[in-house]
Simulated assay, not measured.
Amino acid sequence: MMFDLPDSQTLYQALLNRDDSYEGRAWVGVSSTGIFCRLSCPARKPKFENCTFYPAISDCLDAGFRACKRCRPLDQAAGDDPVVTPLLAALDHDPSRRWREADVAQMGFDPSNVRRVFKRQFGMTFLEMARQRRLREGFTTLKEGAPVIAAQIDAGFDSASAFRAAFGRRIGLAPGQFRADALMKVDWIDTPLGPMVAIACQHQLHLLEFFDRKALPTEVRRLQERQPGGLGFGRTPVMEQLTAELAQFFAGELSRFETPCAFHGTAFEQEVWRALQDIPAGQTRSYGDLATGLGRPSATRAVARANGKNQIAILIPCHRIIGADGNLTGYGGGIWRKRRLIEVETTYKERVSA
């Protein structure tokens, strides 16, 4: 069952104390290891800046974390369920296998019942869980410069077209469309809030979004329309600077980024994005506040639309916008990420003020 998580410092203390009162209600993803754990995990405790706390196992898996083999959070969530336990064991034994409902039935389980049980226990079906693990392997292979066929094999897809379709749904561009001679490069950057997709040329950052954001394919296509010339896998000096600054940001050591950004929007949208960057770290504004600050108090809705079209997360800090009543409003990367970003910046503000 989902519930509102307390602040990250409280959850981190619970992790240090191996507090079992959060069993089944909160989990921690550790960016330095790529795994997620129960808060009662007996393993050595990670640093606070490497921890992200989640209210559901599906959120951990969506963010790209693997289950800890020591505290085994998937097994804990499953309990002694006679349906879940053998299927998880089978998935661990052969993570690259392309599972189908027929395979589930062959193991003696009713596929419809398996769907219901996994959805209830983990927030996703067994086939979705298996597909996610396979795709992650494929993405890693492509990033390392291997051909599409190698990525397809690593991801466990029998069909190249099926792999291209799955990749296209996630990224918005089939792997065969990536070009070695493209001026703009795509890479993954791991952060404490999950992996992010960055697109940059040699001189500017053009896109930065969380890997699991549903709008990512649309944003990639929109960028392609504005910047023809194709995309390729690789890392530019801009990405190196971005990666270093993101690490400093999440460590609470940096509040303003120097990575050069390309603003792909109308003159008004760019004005809004620059106004967002002018909000001091650790502070928030409402849409109305932002519109008034721009000298356009009646343009609240237009400001909100411009905020939603931002394609450079964190660096253009749309997470600093909250509701007029002080509550957190929608955020493309998820409200839990918005809450954590504000916490990171508040910690930075307190450290500087001390």
Score class of each variant (00 low, 15 high):
P6D: 11
D7M: 08
S31V: 08
S32K: 01
L39E: 04
P42S: 05
P42R: 07
R44M: 07
K45A: 15
P46N: 06
E49N: 10
T52L: 11
F65H: 08
R66M: 13
A67F: 03
C68Y: 01
C68K: 02
L74A: 10
L74N: 04
D75A: 13
Q76C: 11
D81C: 00
A89N: 11
L91K: 12
D92G: 04
H93W: 00
D94Q: 12
S112N: 10
N113Y: 00
F122I: 06
M124F: 04
M124Y: 00
M124G: 09
E128L: 03
Q132G: 15
R134M: 06
T140G: 11
P147N: 07
A160K: 12
A162M: 10
A162H: 10
F178G: 11
A182C: 01
A182K: 06
A182F: 01
L183T: 15
T191C: 01
V197D: 04
R222C: 03
R222T: 13
P228W: 01
G230N: 07
L231Q: 08
V238C: 11
F249V: 06
T259K: 02
C261V: 15
A262H: 12
F263K: 12
V272R: 04
D278P: 02
Q283F: 07
G288L: 05
L290H: 02
S298L: 08
A306R: 03
A313D: 15
I314K: 00
I316H: 09
G333E: 11
R339C: 06
R351D: 06
